[in-house]
Amino acid sequence: MLLEVENIAVSFGKVAALRGISINVGKQSIVAIIGANGAGKSTTLRAISGLEKLQEGEIRFEGEAISNLPPDRIVGRGIAHVPEGRRVFPDLTVEENLRTGAFLRTDAEQTEADLRSVFESFPRLLERIGENAKTLSGGEQQMLAIGRALMAKPRLLLMDEPSMGLAPVVVDEIAVIIRKICAEGVPVVLVEQNAQMALRLADYAYVLETGTVALEGNADSLLDNDHVRAAYLGV
């Protein structure tokens, strides 16, 4: 397993956000985490990235414990995170945003090549290369956030609600991009409220309810599961 999340617990003050969650991510796969608002989806990703302190449990990446390392060290291990709400740097240009993603890299030539390939994948970013990120549309900002994460040359990509607030046609574009990223060898953990999109993309999925894993299984089988259909797909 590439990523092993074992029985982690996180709380905010007295409120338990995660109460013993276990998740595994293998190579070459898209793993979806779905659930209602407040179920703990984002908190799970934030715990993996070191943004939330674990009270219990352990997280291992490529066999090594990364629990409670600071976020910058976890990026250094090879995990990039596209945060909820995109969080691009509003007053940095598109190019500066992308280069910030490569902050820890020392392989200058390969970095330049990766920058070119990000612009190939997202031609609209190239058109706006010198503009401040705050002037971009929501879809463009999401592409910038994804491109920025790819600039770190990650071996695992965490994506938090990439479809949030985007028009359906843009959501489709993002879905294509996620497939492409995985096909190029970077596994993706996808947190989504849009369960339909997530389950169609993913190989395997976890359903979170009030801080625990309520259900897990192959994404196809969850699409047919009565509980999932009633609670998350609205059919």
Partner: peptide, 20 residues
């Protein structure tokens, strides 16, 4: 860049590998 990025969004900066 890292300073400006951190000033704009400290948490997002740490997710780029910038040590706060």
């Amino acid at each position: 860049w890292a300073l400006r990025a951190s000033a704009q969004d400290r948490e997002a900066a740490s997710l780029q590998g910038i040590s706060i």
